[in-house]
Amino acid sequence: MSAIDSFPITRRWPPRDPRVLQLYSFPTPNGIKVSTFLEESGLAYEPHRVTLDDTDVKSPEFLSLNPNNKIPAIVDPDGPGGRPLGLF
């Protein structure tokens, strides 16, 4: 069990590599900005497609990470003190 397993969102969109940033997004202008930054900066990340449909953005799993039901959202498995950090 990895440290990011404590985030309910990982039950719906399980990570293949829990050691890298987990990006939950959709290819909208705001979603693309974050994935472009991650690509350009060379940071390792794993994308998860979260549609704008209510079944995704209003799911309990997604709302547990971002209560505003907006993409993008990220789980950093190596946050402050080595503990995972959710960002939205």
Score class of each variant (00 low, 15 high):
Pro15His: 10
Gln22Thr: 08
Phe37Gly: 04
Thr55Trp: 06
Ala3Glu: 13
Trp13Asp: 14
Gly79Thr: 07
Pro47Tyr: 09
Leu65Gln: 07
Thr28Asp: 08
Leu38Trp: 08
Val20Met: 08
Val57Lys: 02
Pro27Ile: 13
Ile9Phe: 10
His48Ala: 04
Leu63Asp: 01
Leu23Asn: 10
Ala44Ile: 01
Arg19Tyr: 01
Gly42Arg: 00
Phe26Ile: 01
Ser64Leu: 05
Pro67Gly: 07
Pro84Met: 10
Pro47Val: 04
Met1Leu: 14
Asp78Gln: 14
Pro15Gly: 04
Ala44Phe: 02
Ser6Trp: 06
Trp13Ile: 07
Leu23Pro: 11
Pro29His: 09
Gln22Gly: 03
Met1Trp: 11
Leu85Arg: 14
Pro72Ala: 11
Pro84Ser: 02
Gly82Ala: 02
Tyr24Arg: 04
Ala73Cys: 09
Leu63Gly: 00
Lys33Met: 13
Leu52Gly: 02
Gly86Val: 00
Pro60Gln: 00
Gly86Ile: 00
Met1Gly: 12
Lys58Arg: 12
Val50Ala: 08
Thr55Phe: 09
Arg83Val: 04
Pro47Lys: 14
Leu23Ala: 13
Asp53Arg: 12
Pro67Asp: 10
Pro60Glu: 03
Pro15Asn: 12
Leu65Pro: 10
Pro80Phe: 02
Pro60Leu: 04
Thr51Pro: 01
Gly81Cys: 04
Ser59Phe: 01
Pro29Tyr: 08
Lys33Thr: 15
Val34Tyr: 03
Pro84Arg: 10
Phe62Leu: 03
Pro14Met: 04
Arg11Met: 14
Pro47Thr: 11
Gly86Asn: 06
Leu63Asn: 00
Val20Asp: 05
Tyr24Ile: 04
Ala3Phe: 05
Thr10Trp: 12
Asn68Gly: 09
